[in-house]
Nucleic acid binder design. Structure first.
Ligand SMILES: NC(=O)c1ccc[n+]([C@@H]2O[C@H](COP(=O)([O-])OP(=O)(O)OC[C@H]3O[C@@H](n4cnc5c(N)ncnc54)[C@H](O)[C@@H]3O)[C@@H](O)[C@H]2O)c1
Ligand SMILES: NC(=O)c1ccc[n+]([C@@H]2O[C@H](COP(=O)([O-])OP(=O)(O)OC[C@H]3O[C@@H](n4cnc5c(N)ncnc54)[C@H](O)[C@@H]3O)[C@@H](O)[C@H]2O)c1
Lengths: 230, 230
DNA sequence: CTGGCTTTGTGAATGTGTGCACGAGTGCCT
DNA sequence: AGGCACTCGTGCACACATTCACAAAGCCAG
């Protein structure tokens, strides 16, 4: 089944927190902080200090007891583990509202994920320029993926077209997909898919609101102490 | 009667799957399907059938052995549990790339989350109309929240302004926040916060890509013969 | 060099989620 | 009516995740 067994496996929960630590550590480095304790990092990340230490321990023993972690070194190690030592160009499928926002968002390229191309099936969209990238026809997808060595595809089409987009991406050679359409994609097992579903997030919030209303009738929250959340 | 008035708590993992079931069931109802088995729903949702049954069992025993679940009734029950029996107006803070995409996205209102208002701090943005809603100044936030009875706020400002946006939302009376800015927010414990962080998602994909490369030659891996053991 | 202080790294305990396996209902057919 | 095929609901075991608690390790002062 899984061919990758050679390297130590990092738990999913940890992998999803490493990017958060990375961003915070980068900011700290920028601010001139050389050293940070698990407690300090935990505070900034809004998590438990023991969790931070355990997470970081999966990378190796890069801390110094009694002192903490060297920020720059930790940044380097996390980047290495996450595969951020080089850029990962992405291709966006769908140049609608969302596709345009994504293309116009500089933070993409800054963080190592330059937009290698945007494609759409609608001829009226093709040719327009978004965030410095010209929208191309979806038939050019294979060529873009091949020549720009794209491994990651982003789906920003309507739900009805998402499976088609996924099929095309997979056929073109993409191996990871970030899906914004509210649809469960069917792809080969080897393809990594992550979904970002706005409606789901809102409905989860709705659940908690509804629950809050059901219990007691204290409409407004009391001004209690603050606690970080994620 | 009404014996199950108990405030049973539904596991987080289940709550996050209910919206997915709900969407699928709604589609099935639309397509004229009256009845569905846990197996059928599981297939469409891309999960294990036992998980579906266990998830649904938290709502009560609404299935019929030997038959399955009545789609319409299940839709009703899930909507009730998620608090979707009435609309939850939302207010969007930040009318930039993302805020505009969100405002222009019809799926919001359709799913019970009408945009009650969009606010921005930039006077050049104020007054423009997005998706039928006029952008107003952020100082009007308390009034919007109060008059439109808004419980949910969406943060679409740059990272540096996100904490300020959160503070204003909380002060105005919002109790749930959906945060798109790549920042850990600090809010009172009673406030429910959910984060959607694009960079995190991409970095998780990057991790798996890097891992797939096996620590040896990375990069290319293009060409054919993918899908492996799928 | 020793002792006191700090903070890491991790075993163990606890909490949460998943999936199998199977008893218990239900509907249909003979 | 009785048997049979089907599918739910759930106990249980296992896997994964979080948190606690503490010894080991490093730093520094004297
Ligand atoms: N806009 C938002 O804020 C927002 C928020 C959350 C989720 N989403 C989801 O993101 C997706 C896109 O939303 P949007 O508002 O940008 O929609 P949109 O209709 O504005 O844009 C969709 C684009 O995809 C293109 N397209 C359609 N079929 C295609 C195909 N087969 N191949 C390639 N391109 C194709 C269309 O031509 C169009 O340009 C939807 O699934 C939506 O549910 C959007
Ligand atoms: N655009 C995207 O596709 C995208 C994708 C992922 C994440 N994000 C995140 O979403 C956020 C917004 O991105 P964007 O591209 O829309 O940025 P943007 O700069 O286009 O828009 C930000 C808007 O927020 C307004 N603003 C600034 N400070 C404010 C304040 N204190 N109160 C109210 N409004 C304020 C600005 O005037 C501006 O209109 C960022 O944090 C970004 O990291 C964006």
């Amino acid at each position: 089944m899984a061919p990758d067994r050679n390297r130590r496996r990092i738990p999913d929960a940890t992998v999803s927190r490493l990017p958060v630590y990375l961003r915070i550590l980068s900011e700290q480095a920028e601010a001139g902080v050389d050293n940070i304790s698990s407690e300090g990092l935990a505070e900034l990340a809004g998590v438990n200090a023991a969790k931070v230490r355990k997470d970081l321990s999966y990378l190796g023993s890069y801390g110094t007891r009694g002192v903490g972690y060297e920020v720059a070194y930790l940044v380097y190690q996390i980047r290495r583990e996450l595969g951020l030592t080089h850029d990962w160009p992405v291709v966006i499928v769908g140049a609608g509202n969302l596709g345009q926002a994504l293309a116009g968002y500089g933070g993409f390229g800054e963080r190592g994920f330059p937009v290698a191309g945007i494609v759409d099936i609608d001829d009226t969209k093709v040719g327009t320029v978004l965030g410095g990238t010209r929208v191309r026809h979806i038939d050019e997808l294979p060529q873009i993926v091949l020549t720009r060595r794209v491994n990651i595809g982003v789906i920003a089409t309507p739900g009805g077209a998402a499976q088609d987009a996924a099929d095309r991406l997979v056929k073109a050679g993409v191996t990871s997909i970030l899906n914004f359409a509210p649809v469960v994609l069917s792809v080969p097992r080897a393809i990594e898919v992550r979904k970002v579903d706005l409606a789901v997030e809102l409905q989860i919030l709705s659940y908690h609101e509804q629950r809050r209303a059901g219990g007691a009738i204290h409409a407004v929250q009391s001004g209690t102490g603050r606690s970080a959340t994620a």
